[in-house]
């Protein structure tokens, strides 16, 4: 079974294909699109349109889910600009992976009074990841951007594990 990518969320929302989108503006657009497309407001339509109406509403909801998180938005952006780039750039630098493993270990054995400091460090690492991603995209170096997205996933996972422990 192979995943068939959803329609490009930037197109569904009618917003430019960029990494940085204003969060409030995006949310307002989502609420407006929902009012326009939700099947609850389109019940009088012909029954044949029913599935199409549902499909359109689903696209809006799914696009919102992708766009509202900067990292999933970044993935969608890379896929839209260069299909397959994420899959082709999964190999990460061993030194980076070794660091990721150490971070994971730190999370696993963190002392309760160190949780706050570790959380701040991971958050910083993620912020740095995103800044670097922005630079990669700015240089149109999409393979580097793809690796950056993959790398950030380790930091996100470590952060999630830390929250789970706390």
């Amino acid at each position: 079974m192979t995943h068939v990518p959803a329609p490009d969320p930037f197109t569904v929302f009618g917003v430019p294909r960029t990494l940085d989108l204003d969060a409030r503006e995006l949310e307002r657009r989502y609420l407006r699109l929902s009012r326009e497309c939700h099947p609850d407001h389109l019940r009088t339509q012909d029954a044949n349109d029913c599935l199409a109406v549902l499909q359109r509403a689903a696209e809006v909801n799914d696009a919102w889910k992708t766009l509202r998180d900067p990292w999933t938005r970044a993935k969608a952006l890379l896929e839209a600009e260069s299909p397959g780039v994420l899959a082709a750039n999964k190999k990460l630098d061993p030194a980076f992976l070794a660091d990721a493993l150490e971070l994971a270990e730190e999370v696993a054995f963190v002392r309760p009074d160190h949780v706050g400091a570790l959380r701040a460090r991971l958050q910083q690492a993620l912020d740095a990841d995103f800044a670097a991603l922005r630079a990669d995209v700015g240089r149109a170096d999409l393979p580097a951007a793809a690796r950056r997205v993959h790398g950030a996933h380790y930091h996100k996972k470590a952060l999630a594990d830390l929250e789970h422990k706390a």
């Binding site: 079974m1 995943h3 068939v4 549902l54 689903a58 909801n61 799914d62």
Partner: peptide, 19 residues
């Protein structure tokens, strides 16, 4: 089980897979 649609996804929602 391979998850297709995650809980707490806003509905309607859809996913397409090729077999």
């Amino acid at each position: 089980v391979q998850k297709l649609i995650l809980r707490n996804s806003t509905i309607p929602t859809s996913v397409t897979e090729e077999f």
